[in-house]
Every structure is written in structure tokens, then in C-alpha cells.
Computed example of a mutant assay.
Amino acid sequence: MLTFEEALARLLAGASPVHETETVATQAAAGRILAQGVRSTIDVPPLDNTSMDGYALRCADVPLAGTPLQVAQRIAAGSVGHLLAPGTAARIFTGAPLPAGADAVVMQELCAVAGDTVTVNHVPHSGEWIRRRGEDIAAGAEVLAAGTRLSAAHVGVAASVGAASLTVFRRLRVALFSTGDELAMPGEALKPGGIYNSNRYTLRALLEGAGCVVEDCGIVPDRRDATREALRRAAAGNDLILTSGGVSVGEEDHVKPAVEAEGSLDLWKIAIKPGKPLAFGTVRRGAGSAAAFIGLPGNPVSSFVTFLMLVRPFILKAQGASAVTPRAQALRADFACKGDPRREFLRARINDAGGLELFANQSSGVLTSCTWADGLIDNPPGQAVARGDMVRFLPFSELL
């Protein structure tokens, strides 16, 4: 049986990053992986400007609170003022460039205006409420590195330096199918012994959230010949084949032998809970190439957790991302539980006191634990947890 670390290392070693790139509009780039870094050609901000509505002035002109100054100009954002004469002030609005000669801005709440005279009821200091040229980004600086998975903030930074388009890696193409004669689609009547195929919906949403193009191949009957045919079709036009169900040791579980017949299988059992059975390998597609294959367990929580912890890093690496593993937090356990011989990923959420509560039923079939939770506690093998212990928490914000 493989440890989690061994399984992840083997998966990542088998992830071949895509090389094809495409240029997309910056406004459509969120969620994509940057293939070419972005370097600024400008300073941001381009000029010294004010971060407050108020009056731009010379500090030397206001030695005492209550000093009157003539308002000689008005500067709105998008316009440029002229040299500020001694003894005068400029009415200025947030984002507007500072006029030459001014060395501070006094917020309007500390001023009183009568006609064209402003009384400054505050002694300013040099630099007050001024944003300096280039204090955010200097011209020539790399603002986004290749391999960055672009968030809303990254897209905003690209736009702030004038990048109208970005070069990104193409999306990973993933074929998704489920196996199991007991599976029915939502909206269909359940036959005796049937269950609705929640994994198909969960995994598609997870794949699309990870930036993949998904080909939904439906439900494959529990027959080896049908499974082999589905694998061949899926391999033809996709980088990865992802299945759920059919990877245990039951007589009706045909995915493992089908993959072995159509390609190769690299691993089978992992010492984690939930998610012990997992298959990884390749499916041949001709001309010496192959699609990667990952077979997830059929239990819904096992499928969900193994995707987050193992498949997601594989996908991110295959799409060219430089950071593929989640960042954890150390949080207080407001519960107690026994350890398990396997490494556990426990569904938990943060309470109002800043500690972690554990979902009462950690069964691999209870998918509501994943909607209740804020993330997963990564608990080492054999590690009992006492109230007050600090545990390793992986928030879903790092995993979804």
C-alpha cells in the first residue's frame, strides 16, 4: 500500500505539462495558467497622486492650524494641474495627479471653504495622503510570473499595466465517465437497488473549476468489453481520462483490468481515508502516445476528497501551474477523536471561536459532510486528536 506522499509523487511524475499556448483577452483570463510572464512598461501609479479628496498645498504655507489659502485651481482625476504658486492650494480629487510644487494633501474634512479661500484646520506633514509614482509597480518589473494560475487580482494587475491580452497554456482536455449498472441520472426514476449518479455532477464541476475542458462520456455498463471500448474512445481526443467507480476488488469492477488491457496501471491502493482505492496509468491512443488515466473510488466523499488531494495537483501541473499543492493552516481542534492507521482527511468547519468542529458522520458515503464543511483536516496515520490540539487544516478555498 502506498503512502499519500508516494502516491502524489508518482502522480506528479506522470503529469506531462501541455506545451500548446493561446492568447486570450485579459478580461477572459481568470482561472487560466499563464504561459508567459507579464512585465510592466509603465510606473503604477504613473504620477504622484492623491489618495483623498481635499486640498493640495505646500506644507511651508501652513505653519499653524487655521491658515487661509487661496484656491487657485481644481484638479479632477484624469486631468493635470499646473505649478502651485506659494500661498495657494489646489482643490483635488482622489486619483488626480499632484500639481508641481505641492508636497501634501489635506483631506476636505479638515478644511473650511468660503468663496475662493480655504482655511486649513490642520498642520500637514510632507507626503500626507500622497501615493508616489511607481509605489505599486515600477516600470520594467515582472508583475506576473509564468505558471501563475490567474485569479481576479492577477487579472486586475495585468490590466493595471495595460496588458490587453495574455499568453496562457491551453486547457487540459478531460474525458469523464462513470461505471455502474446501479447508477441513474437525476430526473430518471430509480429502479430497485439504483442510486443517482452524484459523482458525475461533482467531478464535472471540480474539473471545470480547475480550468479543464470536459467531455462527458456518460455511464458505462459494468462489462469489461464496454469499459475497454469507452477507454479507447476517451483516449482518442483527451489528455486525461477520469472515472469514478470500478476500481475496487469486486467481481463487477472492471476498470482496473480494462486499463491494464488498453495501456498500463501504475498504482492501486493508497493508505488514506477516505479514498483507499485509486488507479493511475495510461491508455494507448496510437502513434506512440497515450492519455493519462485516473480512476477514483465510487463512494461520493472518497471521490471528492481524492480529487482534491491527488487529481487537482496532477491537473494543475499538467496545465503548467508552478504551485500545485494547497497551503494549510494550523487551527485549534474543538473536538476529540481517535486516530486511524491510515492518513485521514476529516471534514470540518471553523466555528465562531476560531476553532474547528468535526462533522459527526465521517462515512465515505455522506456527501452532505462536504457541503457542511469549510475544509479538510489532514490528520497523520495513528494520530489521536484531543481538544485544544493544533491540527493541519486545508480550507476549501485552497482546494476548489
Rank of each mutant, 00 (worst) to 15 (best):
Val255Glu: 05
Ala205Glu: 12
Ile130Met: 01
Ala114Asn: 15
Phe345Cys: 06
Ala333Thr: 07
Leu308Gly: 06
Gly194Tyr: 02
Leu12Lys: 10
Ser289His: 13
Asp181Pro: 04
Ala76Pro: 01
Tyr55Cys: 04
Pro381Tyr: 01
Glu357Gly: 08
Asn121Glu: 14
Ser160Pro: 01
Thr88Lys: 10
Met390Thr: 15
Gly263Pro: 02
Arg10His: 12
Phe335Pro: 08
Phe169Glu: 00
Pro186Asn: 12
Ala114Phe: 10
Ala230His: 07
Thr21Cys: 09
Val123Lys: 12
Pro341Asn: 05
Ser302Tyr: 10
Arg149Ser: 12
Arg285Leu: 03
Ala152Ser: 12
Leu267Trp: 08
Val71Trp: 04
Gln27Cys: 11
Ala13Cys: 11
Gln383Leu: 07
Ile130Gln: 00
Arg347Ser: 12
Ile33Gln: 00
Gly194Leu: 00
Glu182Lys: 08
Asp225Trp: 10
Ile92His: 00
Ala141Asp: 13
Ala163Glu: 13
Arg131Thr: 13
Asp136Lys: 13
Leu376Ile: 09
Val143Asn: 08
Asp53Cys: 00
Leu265Met: 12
Arg131Ile: 14
Gly375Met: 05
Glu251Cys: 11
Leu47Asn: 13
Gly355Leu: 02
Asp389Gln: 08
Lys191Gly: 15
Gly275His: 06
Gly211Pro: 04
Pro192Asn: 11
Val38Gly: 02
Leu267Ile: 09
Gly14Leu: 04
Gln383Cys: 12
Val44Asn: 07
Thr306Pro: 07
Pro313Gly: 06
Gly275Asn: 06
Ala292Tyr: 02
Asp116Phe: 10
Thr282Gln: 15
Ala333Leu: 03
Ala96Cys: 01
Phe177Cys: 02
Cys217Leu: 12
Thr179Leu: 02
Trp372Gln: 13
Val161Glu: 09
Val44Asp: 06
Tyr55Ile: 03
Ser198Tyr: 10
Ala114Pro: 03
Gly156Pro: 00
Thr94Asp: 00
Val255Leu: 09
Tyr201Ile: 14
Asn199Arg: 00
Asn379Val: 09
Ala90Glu: 00
Asp181Met: 08
Glu5Gln: 14
Pro97Ala: 02
Arg132Ile: 01
Val71Cys: 11
Ser51Gln: 07
Asp103Val: 06
Ser397His: 09
Gly54His: 05
Lys276Ala: 10
Ala65Phe: 08
Leu69Thr: 05
Phe393Lys: 04
Gly365Ala: 14
Ala384Asp: 15
Lys269Pro: 07
Gly263Asp: 04
